[in-house]
Design a protein around this nucleic acid. Structure first.
Lengths: 143, 143
DNA sequence: GTAGGAATTAGAATTATTCTAAATTGCCGC
DNA sequence: GCGGCAATTTAGAATAATTCTAATTCCTAC
C-alpha cells in the first residue's frame, strides 16, 4: 500500500491545504485513521488516539471527524444503523460487509459500472453520489 | 399500482402464510405500510396506526415491524444514520434519496445490472445482498 | 372452556451522537 | 515576540431512536 506519509509536517500540510487549522488533535485523529484502515468507529478512534494524547475528549474526536469529513479527507461509512465508521480511502469505491467477521472491505468500482448505475435512474433523476454496499461472506484470507 | 387487497381477511392470510400469529396490531401496522408507500419511519407508522387503534404502544409497533421484516413482508431502509424507514416493495430495487425534499423513491434494478454488480467483487467474496442508494435531486413531478 | 406460550404494554434503560458554556489555543498584525 | 480574538477543545448534560423488562393480555390447541 502506497501509504501517505504521516509525520507531523505532512499531516499539518494536508489540513492547511483544506483551509482548516492544523491542531494537534486533528492531526492525531487523521494519523490514526490513516495508520489502521480498518474502518474504525468514533469510539475506536477515541481509544487509539488516547494512546498518544490521553487528555483528548470524545467530543473533540467527533468534532475532528466532522471537520475531516467536511473537507473531504475522510469518508463516513454507515452500515445499517450501526455506529458510523470512518474511511481514508477517497477513491470511488463500494464496501463489502462480511457478516461472519464484521469486517468491512473496500471494493473498487470501475468507471464503466458507475456509468451504468447512473443510467438506471429514470428521467428527471440526477444522482450526485451513489452508495453501494455488499453484504455476505468472504473466504478467509481474501483481500 | 396493483395494490394488494388490504382488508382484514387478506392481511390475516398474509401473516398466517408467514407463520406468524395474525394479531390485530400486526394487521394494522402492515395495512398502514401498504396503504401509503412513502417509506415512513416507526414514529410515523405509530402515528398513523393510532388513528384506527389509539391504544397501541410504540414498543408494539417496533415489535410488529421486526416481525414483518423477519418474515419478509416489509423491508428496512436505512439512509445514513437517520431513523429506519419501512418499505413494502419486495422487488429488488434501489433507493433514490432526494436531498431537496427528503423524499425517497424506489428505483427498479434490471437483472443485468445486478449481475454486473456481483461481478465487481474480487475472488473470494460472495454477496448475499446488495444495498444501493442514490443521493441527488429529482425534477419536481418525476416518478 | 382452559392451559400455556406468544404478544402487547408502559416505562425504564441504552447508546451513539450532539449540544452547551466555559476554558484554552492558534494565528494575525504589529 | 506579543496582544487580541475568533476558532477549537473540553466535560458533562441533553437528545433521540431503539431495545429491554416484567407484568398483563391474548390467541390457539386441546
Amino acid at each position: 500500500m502506497p501509504a501517505t506519509k504521516q509525520n507531523h509536517a505532512a499531516l499539518s500540510e494536508r489540513l492547511k491545504a483544506c483551509d482548516v487549522r492544523p491542531t494537534a488533535q486533528r492531526e492525531v485523529v487523521l494519523k490514526v485513521i490513516l495508520e489502521k484502515r480498518d474502518h474504525p468507529t468514533a469510539d475506536e478512534i477515541f481509544a487509539r488516539v488516547k494512546a498518544s494524547m490521553p487528555t483528548i475528549s470524545l467530543a473533540t474526536v467527533y468534532n475532528c471527524l466532522d471537520t475531516l469529513v467536511q473537507c473531504g479527507l475522510v469518508r463516513q461509512v454507515n452500515l445499517e444503523r450501526a455506529p458510523t465508521r470512518y474511511c481514508p480511502n477517497l477513491h470511488q469505491h463500494a464496501h463489502f460487509h462480511d457478516e461472519a467477521t464484521g469486517q468491512i472491505h473496500d471494493v473498487d468500482l470501475p468507471e464503466e459500472v458507475m456509468t451504468r448505475l447512473h443510467e438506471v435512474l429514470p428521467a428527471g433523476f440526477a444522482a450526485r453520489s451513489i452508495d453501494l454496499t455488499f453484504r455476505g461472506s468472504a473466504k478467509t484470507g481474501a483481500n
